[in-house]
Each structure stands twice: as C-alpha cells, then as structure tokens.
C-alpha cells in the first residue's frame, strides 16, 4: 500500500511538474488551441492529400470509397428522417408553463447547434447542446431527459438538421481562463492511453487512421463532430457523440464515463475545436 501511496503522490507530482513546465517552456512545446488545430488539420491533409478539407466532414466516407458508395445510397432514404420529424414536434411543444425550448436560446433556430459546445463562464464548465437542453428543461420546471433517450436524440437531430450548412466555430476565449483548462483536459484525454488495451483515441483515429480494424477502416478524428447524432446501422438506432465516446472507451477495456460527464464534454470541446471551419452536416448515417 505504501508503494501505491507513493505512486499516487507521484501522479500528483507529475501533474504539478506538467503545469509548471507549461508555464515556463517555449510556446512550441505547449502550443495553444489554434496552433494545435493547424497541426491537426495539417496531419490529416498530409495523410490524405487528395481529400479536400471540407470532405472530412463526411467522416470515414471521405477516405473509404467503397463505404462511401453504400452511404450515398443510404442517404437516398435517410434512416434519421423520423428522428428529425419527432424532434421538430418536441421542439414546438410548449412546456407546462407555456414557454418553449426556443425561449431558452439567444440564437435563431438554425444557429443553436453551431453555438455548442461552449465554455460557460458562469458555470465554469463546458456546456454541450445536450446539456443545454436539460438546463432549459430544468429552468422551466420540467424533468431533464436521459442523455441516451429517444427524446434527447430526436431534439439534437432536429437542431443539427436545421443547422446544416453552418460552420463549426468553437471558441476558447482568452478572457475565460477556465476555457483553456477545459480544452487542455479534453486534449489530454484524447492523447492518453487507457484501458486494458492501452490505447488512446489518437492511436486509432490519428496514428492508424484509414487502416483496417476488423472489416472496417478507422475514421479520421478531423470531422467527427460535424454529423452527430448518427443512425448506426449495426445498432438500428440513433446515437449521440457521447455514446460513441462511451463505446470507444469500453472497447479499449477501460471503464466508460457517464454520458455528458465532464470528461466527455471536455473531449467534445477539444475535438470540436479541431474541426473548426468544417460544415455541420448532421444528423448522419453510419455503419
């Protein structure tokens, strides 16, 4: 036990040294979000020089021609259409106090999706679209939705649909110190190996991008946040981005975090920033 207590102290000491180093080492070693994004985009563009930047919004279908052909046929009768219709009906249904979802947001309907994820200075944490919906419900005396509920997925599918064509434009404001910390936490999560398989998100979606995992190619992280929620054919239902995170963490045999946990919200914040400038094209259809 003493050895492990020392180990635990060592972890804390490591984190302290990292923070100290971040404060004093040259900028190139601990780059800011925009430098990170340019390096991130540059990596994928060099790996796939024939894929235009905008195409990365199509996920795996940007780099896997056979899968793309199947996907384009699926898109002729999109399996997510019913979710959009249900989401629109939910959006338009007033709460018991006669307010509506629209009253909770400062943006026109088509711009709500693109406003998230954002760092909420008052709350001191990243707020995603899904979380904002539950904040809205609670503020109006309603019961919050489960994050994997059909209602939540339908609402986010509708908001993604009406936002199609908008660009991802996540900010990490200099005047909100907590935002950079949240971004860095998401970045750390993304590049950290975890679980019994000792794999980081980046091991599959950066280092091994385009390679086979069983019968499928691994997709690029650049563009992942544009198209959620998605209809997954293998599950026969829609899933959120956080449910996908949950599945990936479980697949590397680590204990997954809860949907909308701080860990996943920070991860979404980092990934969405990396995809800034790409076009929102959700909801999507995936295998």
């Amino acid at each position: 036990m003493l050895v492990l207590e020392r180990r635990h102290r060592s972890i804390r000491a490591g984190a302290f040294v990292a923070l100290l180093a971040a404060a004093i080492l040259p900028h190139a070693v601990f780059a800011g979000p925009e430098e990170d994004r340019l390096d991130f985009v540059g990596y994928f563009q060099s790996r796939f020089p024939n894929v235009p930047f905008d195409e990365f919004a199509n996920g795996i279908y940007a780099i896997d021609e056979d899968a793309r052909t199947q996907w384009l046929e699926i898109e002729e009768f999109p399996p997510y259409e019913f979710a959009i219709e249900r989401g629109e009906a939910l959006w338009q249904t007033p709460f018991s106090n006669s307010s509506t979802y629209a009253d909770c947001y400062d943006w026109p309907l088509g711009e709500i999706r693109a406003a998230y994820p954002k760092f909420d200075a008052a709350r001191g944490e990243v707020v995603t679209l899904d979380l904002s919906i539950n904040h809205c419900l609670v503020a109006n005396g309603e019961t919050p939705l489960a994050y994997n509920s059909s209602e939540m997925i339908d609402l986010t599918a509708y908001l993604a649909w009406v936002a199609r064509g908008q660009k991802i434009d996540v900010r990490v404001p200099d005047d909100e110190p907590g935002s950079l910390a949240a971004y860095e936490e998401g970045k750390r999560f993304y590049y950290s190996k975890r679980g019994q398989l000792n794999l980081a998100c980046a091991d599959c979606h950066v280092t091994s991008v385009g390679m086979y995992v069983r019968a499928d190619h691994l997709s690029a992280s650049l563009g992942h946040p544009t198209h959620f929620p998605v209809y997954r054919s293998k599950l026969g239902r829609m899933i959120s981005m956080h449910e996908r995170f949950y599945g990936c963490v479980r697949d590397v045999r680590a204990r997954p975090f809860d949907l909308q946990s701080l860990e996943y919200r920070n991860l979404e914040y980092f990934l969405a920033y990396m995809s800034n400038g790409l076009t929102i094209n959700g909801p999507g259809a995936r295998k």
Binding site: L4, R7, I11, A18, A31, D39, G42, Y191, R194, Q196
Partner: peptide
C-alpha cells in the same frame, strides 16, 4: 493486478500523452 496496472498506466500517462500531440 489490474488495479495496479491501471495505476501504473495513470502515472505514466500523466506525462506520456504529450509526446503524442500532433506537431
């Protein structure tokens, strides 16, 4: 054994993740 290995992983990753950041 698993819990000890997970702690070793956590200790290593406190710094090791930085080496994987795209530059």
């Amino acid at each position: 054994f698993q819990a000890e290995a997970a702690l070793i992983q956590a200790e290593r990753e406190a710094e090791a993740w930085r080496s994987r950041v795209l530059q």
